[in-house]
């Protein structure tokens, strides 16, 4: 990686605690949209509550969030609208919650995507992270439940993780309000282009698939020069995703302004 993405540490200015206002459900007139994605049971809703000041019910069972929740906060006079997506393990299947999450990240055009993961179960969670990084360029990894991981003697090298993924990584323990200011600061810097991501793309794909994906994505880029996730769209086309095919036909894909 030549053009190293700046990690959160590199750009850390002192967090402006006075600049934060939690707006609850007042989601009108926002400047940026922030999507919350992650595996079930990683405390996504707890992080969401911590940022918005909302107290939507959280529960220790997978699949708790059944409705797409929205909230907002204001930081340094900019309004961020937050969308809590249903927790999923992947974005590749046809189940309803995965479709909601996948389509929102692709078509909802969030300025920033916060990917909440369980620090103790990083490997399994990365499955989803790598998929999301194919879709969007502007993301932050929220390494939640870091207190549990520490108790279990799991050590995570956050700088190397940020470097490998090409996005900032913020360790949090949302239940105890730890790491939340840093997360807000990072979201704000991402939204304002102060941190540039260079997200990792999936490697080790068998050569014949890689070639097909390349062929297709080249053609997509030629047709739609401003497309940023041609590779993901190529993958979805090869998968036969009818909504992507539909979006191609209606030209919805071309109007993406990332």
């Amino acid at each position: 990686m030549e053009n190293k993405a700046k990690s959160a540490c590199d750009t850390c200015t002192h967090f402006n605690a006075d600049g934060i206002k939690k707006l609850g459900v007042k989601t009108d007139d926002f400047d940026f949209v922030v999507a919350f994605a992650g595996n079930p049971n990683t405390g996504k809703s707890t992080v969401f509550n911590a940022l918005t000041g909302l107290r939507q019910h959280t529960g220790n069972w997978p699949g708790k969030t059944v409705i797409r929740a929205e909230g907002a906060f204001e930081y340094n006079e900019q309004k961020f609208k937050l969308v809590d997506l249903p927790g999923t393990y992947s974005l590749l299947s046809t189940s309803e919650d995965e479709e909601v999450a996948r389509n929102f990240i692709l078509f909802g055009k969030p300025t920033v995507t916060v990917i909440v993961v369980d620090a103790s179960r990083l490997e399994r969670n990365l499955n989803l992270v790598l998929q999301i990084l194919e879709i969007t360029n502007n993301a932050v990894l929220c390494l939640n439940l870091i207190d549990e991981a520490e108790r279990n003697n799991i050590k995570i090298d956050i700088r190397i993780l940020a470097k490998d993924l090409g996005i900032p990584v913020v360790p949090t323990s949302a239940r105890f309000q730890k790491g939340i200011p840093e997360l807000i600061q990072t979201i704000s810097e991402l939204a304002n282009g102060k941190i540039l991501c260079k997200p990792r793309r999936i490697k080790n794909i068998p050569q014949n698939i890689e070639n097909s994906v390349k062929e297709l994505s080249d053609k997509l880029e030629k047709e739609y020069p401003n497309i940023l996730n041609s590779r993901w769209i190529a993958i979805r086309l090869l998968e036969g995703d009818t909504q992507i095919i539909e979006a191609l036909k209606t030209g919805k894909i071309a109007t993406n302004e990332y």
Binding site: L126, N204, I205
Partner: peptide, 27 residues
């Protein structure tokens, strides 16, 4: 295709974790 893709993602994930995560003995 689907299986191969999923496999690549998993192997990618495990490679990252190998570099990043270290576990103590205490479980």
């Amino acid at each position: 295709f689907h299986d191969n893709l999923a496999e690549s993602i998993y192997s990618d994930a495990s490679k990252i974790v190998e570099d990043v995560v270290s576990k103590g003995d205490k479980k």
